[in-house]
Design a protein around this nucleic acid. Sequence first.
DNA 1: GCGATTTCCTTTAACCTTAAACTAATTCGG
DNA 2: CCGAATTAGTTTAAGGTTAAAGGAAATCGC
Lengths: 179, 179
Amino acid sequence: MSSTRLREHVDAESKLDEDTADHRVELRLWLRLLTCANLIEAEIRKRLRENFDTTLPRFDLMAQLERAPDGILLGELSRRMMVSNGNVTGLVERLVQEGLIERQVSERDRRAALVRLTDHGATVFAKMARAHSDWVAELLAGLSAHDQKALWSRLGDLKLSVRTATEGAADAPEPENDR
Amino acid sequence: MSSTRLREHVDAESKLDEDTADHRVELRLWLRLLTCANLIEAEIRKRLRENFDTTLPRFDLMAQLERAPDGILLGELSRRMMVSNGNVTGLVERLVQEGLIERQVSERDRRAALVRLTDHGATVFAKMARAHSDWVAELLAGLSAHDQKALWSRLGDLKLSVRTATEGAADAPEPENDR
DNA sequence: GCGATTTCCTTTAACCTTAAACTAATTCGG
DNA sequence: CCGAATTAGTTTAAGGTTAAAGGAAATCGC
């Protein structure tokens, strides 16, 4: 009844204090989004470790290579994975060590290096990818197909909102990981 | 016209191969969720670094302390932050070093240690929290209030789905970060 | 051609993160 | 009381991550 209850409806007032707006709704939304992503990610990391003795970054890297049978440059790889160059250097090093991928210095540009899955790597990745896919489906099983599509669509809006707010004056195509 | 176009409508067939189901929809949803979370998180990390010369984990830790003016045990802190004990040990070490928080060994249990914000830490955190809140609102500004609520609600379903799939036989209350 | 610039990648220093092993203090069962 | 089990934190080893600096090769502009 008192003023605190009323304030929600007094647009004239709330618009005036933009500098002190609390943004409660946005914060809760962001925290929940983060919680969801972290829960799923943690579970997938755990299962990758337990079942295949590997990590999510290595899996992600191999997933990129699987889509590029002819190999891919390190720079392009780091762009697609949205991580730094130095990061890829280390990941590639370890995966080569494990015999899952191979590096090859480019003929026409000796700065550049191509990486691709080895046969063994492709075999291993196929197994991991199937399991990974099943796990994700299992974790999302509580949502109907309709809900999944609705959520996907709303996340599309969110992605656009973030990109718009971030890319100040840019208009770069940007990597599309999720179509 | 051809069979590929038809297949989408042939339920009898798709239900039969559950073992080889491709889970395309679920995978795309998960990838998009991850992309959104990563975009926002990366931007916030960047701004925390540029504006306050700090990191997201430190900010998160201080946010927990701000909600517990009387201090909090390290174990409880690691539970609320959903990270390992050892992780908290290191973060606390650095924040103490910076004079933003203080540690105090418990009187009644000399294994346990309380941490709380220093006055300086509280002042600094207040500034960071306001900025952080504004940033999140800015990034989500492309969504109407209605869309935000709808997304929040769908993420609630998702969270439940993941928790259900994860907590095999458990029934723990679980920390609630986003209410 | 050739110096300046750009591009591709690696290295470095610092931090975050975890699982597993460990230390020290408390509590529990007799 | 005292040994066993539990609990609170720390340490360690390994890895992921970044920004910034650096090295080497290619390209650009005259």
